[in-house]
């Protein structure tokens, strides 16, 4: 059981969350060329080791999170809200 420290709900079992995917992908503008979209949608770096990835606390606050995690050891280094305003709001609160 991976335990994920949700910035909103506290540390919870990973089974409350849903894994999204590679958090480093920058999706192009909607009118960007097909090749850009192809690369974002189909190509993966598939890092073995530390990667930033997206998770949603789907059975909790439903916030999308950026989780820095080692894909070999499963160790989590950091968790922050994906939405920049949320991340900023948390910093202000802290």
């Amino acid at each position: 059981m991976i335990r994920i420290p949700c910035p909103f709900c506290g540390t919870r079992d990973h089974s409350e969350f849903a894994y999204g995917g590679d958090g480093a992908i920058i999706y192009p503008d909607l009118d960007a060329p097909m090749q850009d979209w192809h690369d974002a949608v189909f190509q993966r770096e598939n890092i073995c080791g530390r990667q930033v990835e997206t998770w949603q606390h789907v059975n909790g606050c439903r916030m999308w999170l950026l989780v820095e995690r080692d894909t070999m050891t499963h160790e989590i280094y950091s968790v922050r809200p994906a939405h920049p305003d949320m991340a900023q709001a948390l910093e202000v609160t802290a």
Partner: peptide, 13 residues
């Protein structure tokens, strides 16, 4: 629902 939340929080904040 998950998809819309993803779009709003990750792609188009």
């Amino acid at each position: 629902m998950v998809w819309l939340e993803e779009l709003l929080q990750l792609r188009w904040p």
